[in-house]
């Protein structure tokens, strides 16, 4: 009986699901609502110099990479299963459709973070 490769994707699904459940609402509120509207936050919260400094620090890079990549792979795994739930019988096709773009986007993210420099 062939061993499933699901543990790789499931682990990222689980890690991303837990991370987004724990800090997701605060992040969405901060980056999507409070900062653009300047609601009770420092005016330069998401200013270019401050974000650049954040992303140039290795810890900041790690935070951005983990949040974006894990959120992405969490969602990808659920969407892959949802395609099956809605009638896409080929699991291999579903994996290519969903995990393929996720891998490309993750590479793009890594490139962006590296080109920001240290």
């Amino acid at each position: 009986m062939k061993r499933s490769s699901a543990p790789i994707f499931w682990s990222m699904f689980g890690a991303g699901g837990l991370l987004s459940a724990l800090v997701g609402p605060a992040l969405v509120y901060l980056t999507g609502i409070a900062a653009p509207l300047s609601w009770g936050v420092p005016l330069d919260l998401m200013s270019y110099p401050r974000m650049l400094a954040f992303a140039q620090h290795w810890a900041g890079k790690a935070v951005v990479f983990l949040v974006v990549a894990l959120f992405l792979w969490h969602a990808a795994h659920r969407i892959y299963h949802t395609l099956h739930d809605l009638g896409l019988h080929s699991k291999a096709l579903g994996q290519w459709i969903v995990y393929g773009p996720s891998a490309l986007l993750t590479a793009w993210l890594a490139w962006a973070l590296l080109s920001i420099g240290f």
């Binding site: 992303a55 951005v64 974006v68 992405l72 969602a75 659920r78 962006a112 920001i116």
Partner: peptide, 23 residues
């Protein structure tokens, strides 16, 4: 519950674009 993933992915994309623009 499963469809929440679509907006989780969309939010990740927003942040990804932000990181690319920052670069």
């Amino acid at each position: 519950r499963e469809w929440t993933a679509v907006l989780v992915a969309a939010y990740a994309l927003v942040l990804l674009v932000g990181a690319v623009r920052l670069a």
